[in-house]
């Protein structure tokens, strides 16, 4: 089971590196599994929430672009696997991202280029819900609608927690579906941990090329799969100690074999 297998690897990756950004990687891991399962080889996924780099590196390891050996260099001096994806190293990491609000405009430019080139491929961009606080989200959203970028699929990892509070207590739900719909997006809400539902929603986007760009608002749980991390903001930041790592692995077994 890919969800369990990759989560085990993800926890090991972060435990070995003794670093944080675990829960936000767990919340979007299933989205990456779905996206990499659905995209064509030449299509690009832009991970705009670059702090989930560990999850992306695992996906690239899964498809063979990053070796097991290289994966062990995560967070080490001299690595190509920095805590946020860095530039010019991997085909499937076309841009260095980690400062929020950059990926969506870039992906819109790529989608616009494909329209100019009469290329039927899609461009995917994965954002966090906190990231939609950024003004560039709404600049890019209006641009995508005005330019009829129906080859652009935005996926939002809506775990309802951001850097220093719940989204409701900061700026409100800036990722709400009705906002996207009001602008002119083809919006869907799905369970962001249900691979089948995610795959179907991506397929629906691909079949509906009527001029509107697409947004999939994926309702997720920050820390998904590790009981003591779920919906806990602190696990955006904390590294695991040995005991926590063992408990996290046990929790995965319970959740995914339940």
């Amino acid at each position: 089971m890919k969800q369990l297998e990759l989560r085990r690897k993800l926890l090991k990756l972060y435990f070995d590196a003794k670093c944080g950004h675990i829960a936000c990687s767990l919340s979007c891991l299933d989205l990456l599994i779905a996206l990499f399962g659905q995209k064509k080889e030449d299509e690009r996924v832009i991970l705009s929430k670059g702090h989930a780099a560990g999850a992306l590196y695992l996906m690239l390891n899964h498809i063979g672009e990053i070796s097991d050996n290289m994966l062990t260099t995560f967070y080490q001096n001299g690595t190509k696997l920095s805590a946020h994806p860095s530039a010019n190293s991997f085909t499937n990491i076309p841009f260095a991202l980690g400062s929020l609000g950059h990926g969506f405009p870039i992906a819109s430019g790529m989608a616009k280029a494909k329209k100019i080139n009469r290329d039927s491929d899609f461009v995917y961009v994965l954002m966090s819900d906190g990231e939609t606080n950024e003004g560039t989200t709404w600049e890019a959203a209006h641009f995508a609608v005005a330019n009829r970028l129906d080859n652009l699929i935005v996926i939002i990892d809506r775990n309802r927690l951001q850097g220093f509070g719940g989204t409701d207590s900061v700026l409100g739900d800036t990722a709400a579906a009705e906002k996207w719909q009001a602008i002119g997006f083809n919006a869907q809400e799905v369970d962001g941990h249900d691979l089948k539902a995610l795959e179907e929603s991506i397929q629906r986007c691909k079949q509906k090329n009527l001029g509107s760009p697409h947004v999939i608002i994926a309702n997720t749980i920050k820390g998904k799969g590790v009981d003591y991390m779920e919906n806990k903001m602190e696990w955006h930041y904390l590294p695991m100690n040995e005991e926590q790592y063992e408990n996290a692995m046990l929790s995965l077994e319970k959740v995914y074999y339940a």
């Binding site: 076309p94 841009f95 609000g101 950059h102 969506f104 405009p105 870039i106 992906a107 819109s108 430019g109 790529m110 989608a111 616009k112 280029a113 494909k114 100019i116 080139n117 003004g135 560039t136 600049e139 890019a140 209006h142 641009f143 005005a146 330019n147």
Partner: peptide, 22 residues
């Protein structure tokens, strides 16, 4: 492309376009 009064997005767009060969 008139990208509107949205300069940050415009530079991101240009980067995406350049990546795709434009």
């Amino acid at each position: 492309i008139n990208a509107g009064v949205a300069e940050q997005n415009m530079v991101g767009l240009a980067s995406g376009l350049a990546y795709e060969g434009h």
